[in-house]
Simulated scan of single mutants.
Amino acid sequence: MKIISDPLELKEHLKKSNSSVGFVPTMGALHEGHIALIKRARQENEIVVVSIFVNPTQFLAGEDLDKYPKKDDADKKICELSGVDVLFFPTAEDMYSNDEVKICAPNVRGYVLEGATRPGHFSGVLRVVMKLLNIVSPTRAYFGKKDAQQLNLIRLMVKQFFMDVEIVPVDIVRDSDGLALSSRNVYLSKAQREEALKIPKSLYAASKLISKNILDTVKIKEEMHAILSPLEIKYVEVLNRDFEVIEKVQIGNTVILVEVIVGKTRLLDNIWL
Rank of each mutant, 00 (worst) to 15 (best):
I4T: 12
I4W: 11
L10A: 07
K11N: 06
K11I: 04
K11D: 02
H13M: 14
F23M: 02
T26D: 00
I35S: 09
A36D: 10
R40G: 01
R42C: 03
Q43S: 15
N45W: 01
E46R: 08
V50Q: 02
V50D: 01
Q58I: 10
F59V: 01
F59W: 03
F59D: 02
D64Y: 08
D72W: 12
D73W: 08
E80G: 06
S82V: 02
V86Q: 05
L87G: 02
E93S: 11
Y96V: 01
S97R: 10
K102T: 15
C104K: 14
A105V: 09
P106V: 05
V108E: 15
V108M: 10
R109P: 14
L113F: 04
E114F: 06
G115P: 04
A116F: 11
P119A: 11
F122C: 04
S123A: 07
S123I: 01
S123C: 03
S123N: 08
S123R: 04
G124T: 06
G124A: 06
L126V: 01
R127C: 08
V129P: 03
M130R: 08
L132F: 11
I135R: 00
V136I: 07
P138F: 05
T139P: 02
R140I: 10
F143L: 15
G144I: 10
A148W: 03
Q149R: 05
Q150K: 12
L151D: 15
N152I: 13
I154P: 07
I154W: 05
V170C: 11
V173R: 00
R174K: 02
G178L: 10
G178M: 09
G178H: 10
L181D: 04
V186L: 09
Y187K: 05
A191C: 10
Q192E: 15
Q192V: 08
E195Q: 10
L203A: 11
L203N: 09
Y204I: 09
A205V: 09
S211L: 05
K212D: 12
N213I: 09
N213L: 14
A226P: 06
A226M: 08
I227T: 14
S229R: 06
L231K: 07
E232N: 13
Y235V: 02
E237F: 03
V238T: 00
N240F: 07
R241F: 05
V245T: 13
V245A: 10
E247T: 10
E247P: 07
K248N: 14
I251K: 15
N253E: 06
T254D: 01
I256K: 01
L257N: 13
V262S: 02
K264P: 08
L267I: 12
L267C: 10
N270T: 03
W272V: 07
L273R: 05
